[in-house]
Amino acid sequence: DHDVVPEDKFQETLHLKEKEGCPQAFHALLSWLLTQDSTAILDFWRVLFKDYNLERYGRLQPILDSFPKDVDLSQPRKGRKPPAVPKALVPPPRLPTKRKASEEARAAAPAALTPRGTASPGSQLKAKPPKKPESSAEQQRLPLGNGIQTMSASVQRAVAMSSGDVPGARGAVEGILIQQVFESGGSKKCIQVGGEFYTPSKFEDSGSGKNKARSSSGPKPLVRAKGAQGAAPGGGEARLGQQGSVPAPLALPSDPQLHQKNEDECAVCRDGGELICCDGCPRAFHLACLSPPLREIPSGTWRCSSCLQATVQEVQPRAEEPRPQEPPVETPLPPGLRSAGEEVRGPPGEPLAGMDTTLVYKHLPAPPSAAPLPGLDSSALHPLLCVGPEGQQNLAPGARCGVCGDGTDVLRCTHCAAAFHWRCHFPAGTSRPGTGLRCRSCSGDVTPAPVEGVLAPSPARLAPGPAKDDTASHEPALHRDDLESLLSEHTFDGILQWAIQSMARPAAPFPS
């Protein structure tokens, strides 16, 4: 592969990997390779389809078979030569091979799209000592099968071997295949498990690692696999990028399955594409389908809103127990993405979901129960707010008499603000006073009005108090039968009158 990737590009890729991570280095090298001529790309395919690569990765054979028959990708048995050289000459001794072996032994695996480039050397060096003999053996194999790289107009793939297949390693990572398949204008990513390549439709969760975000852009890794992070704060999961590491605690105790298979379609829109997988259930989501939507993949363990709600429900009964003089119970939860139609709101002032922060849900004790107040519409209280300059209440639009249902020339009671006709409430011909108009209920007259088809109010509507207090003497005590009587009149003013009279009014101040 030294004929494909020059030394300066190799060093530039290593520097970019240390600065921005393996995914960015892979993407940059792939983009550079696509700008080369067809001879360089053909050399790339020839390096990929060597015999030892085909033996190690069985899924490469179907890719090789898909090439046109007129494309010669065979390799000479006596060494490598550029395709432009007409004579089959043995190339001179390859010093770059020693360079590659020494550099890969030092860096474990470079971040390139060629056999030198995919593992994360920093994480491997940190986690190597417990498994040094086995990992050293794996390093000797890295130059042979560490990076199976493929690129063409139909298929483009980048393979990364790992030393996680050490025997006896619980939940060992089998390997990473960062794979971009450009077929019919689409893009897919796969993962390699035990020599087999699994596409998103049959993606397997190998051991402790999972394909957290099938994305090839942005600074985030394709698999949430930063070796420096180790395990999740809650004892979460091992990262795919942690090559040759000792077994780590796999999943939280509440995880239903340690080796679950995540779905390959969004649980909201039932469509495929780039998904984020939940650590607590097999569901996966688009970032845009979450509520609120996320802009980037959160670091650490992530769970959907259903799993978060289940966790909150487990903690909430203990938080609601009476604990005198104790601060509110704080339950730190990872930043969760909410699927459509589901929402768990945190306290005000918290950062938005999706940031690399930890939301704190506070379970406050329930407030003391209070008697429910009568629910009145805002339009129902409008007549009470229509007060004239002299303190006389004006008529609201649409006000109707509670007896006849007519809204023409209605009066407004100064005591309960109900609309009424003087002739309907006082049919006996009582003279109307000039000021202080009161309806039949507030004036103490319980004589029913002779209106055909309208039920008369119940005599129990009024329960006047002592006459010594004029204001308190007109406080009506309405009961269920009074409400039914008012409802039978089918008037809004009657219902409003009952609601206003049912509310307690402050006692009249004593004259000074």
Rank of each mutant, 00 (worst) to 15 (best):
G241N: 10
Q242F: 11
P253E: 10
Q257E: 06
L258H: 03
H259F: 09
K261P: 13
N262S: 09
E265A: 02
G273F: 04
E274I: 06
D279M: 03
R283W: 13
F285V: 08
H286I: 03
L287F: 13
S291E: 07
P292Q: 09
R295S: 12
I297T: 05
P298T: 09
P298Y: 11
T301Q: 05
C304R: 12
S306Q: 12
L308E: 09
Q309A: 03
Q309Y: 11
E314T: 13
R318C: 13
P327K: 06
P327G: 12
V329A: 12
V329T: 09
V329G: 10
E330K: 11
E330T: 13
E330G: 10
P332D: 03
G336V: 08
G341I: 12
G341K: 05
R345K: 12
P348M: 11
E350Y: 13
P351S: 04
L352N: 06
G354L: 14
M355R: 10
D356E: 06
T357N: 11
V360C: 11
K362T: 08
L364N: 02
L364V: 06
A366R: 07
P372H: 10
L373A: 09
D377T: 14
A380V: 09
L381G: 05
L381W: 09
P383F: 04
C386P: 13
V387K: 05
V387L: 06
V387M: 14
Q392H: 14
Q392C: 06
A399M: 02
C401M: 03
C416L: 02
C416N: 01
A418G: 06
F420P: 03
H421Q: 02
W422A: 11
R423P: 11
H425D: 14
H425F: 03
R432L: 10
P433S: 11
R438W: 12
R440A: 07
S443Y: 13
T447D: 06
V454M: 05
R461T: 02
L462I: 13
L462S: 10
L462D: 15
K468W: 06
S473A: 14
H474T: 03
E475N: 05
A477H: 05
H479M: 04
R480N: 02
D481W: 00
L483C: 06
L483H: 06
L486F: 07
S488L: 09
E489F: 03
F492D: 02
G494V: 02
M503V: 04
A507T: 08
P509E: 04
S512Y: 14
